[in-house]
Design a protein around this nucleic acid. Sequence first.
DNA 1: ACCGTGACGGCGG
DNA 2: GCCGCCGCCACGG
Length: 103
Amino acid sequence: MTAPSAFVTRVLLVVSRIPPGRVATYGDVAALAGRPRAARAVGTIMRTAGRGGLPYHRVVAAGGRIGGYGGRPQVKAALLRAEGLVVRGTRIGSFAGCRWRPR
DNA sequence: ACCGTGACGGCGG
DNA sequence: GCCGCCGCCACGG
């Protein structure tokens, strides 16, 4: 069992803290994990780490766009709608309103 | 240790 | 408002 890097651990921790009905961008997660420019790396981590019972569907791309999710943005959109979010096509409605901002 | 890959971000056309 | 290019960073072979 290779121990996950500190960065990976932080990323997973941040994702686990995103409340239902709220979302955070890959860039947000990267910044909260201590690497403001590692948004792409966050995507890599989620892809490799796979699922761990974490709300990965609450992590969206910049501007509230729905991306990633193993090439299944529809499934992701459905999960977000189930939490009360408004999703139009590949985008989240009132993105600014549901964006998670930890203090 | 090097190189290619990718669930990204920002800017320009 | 959508499409494409380049830059960024960690992962895996």
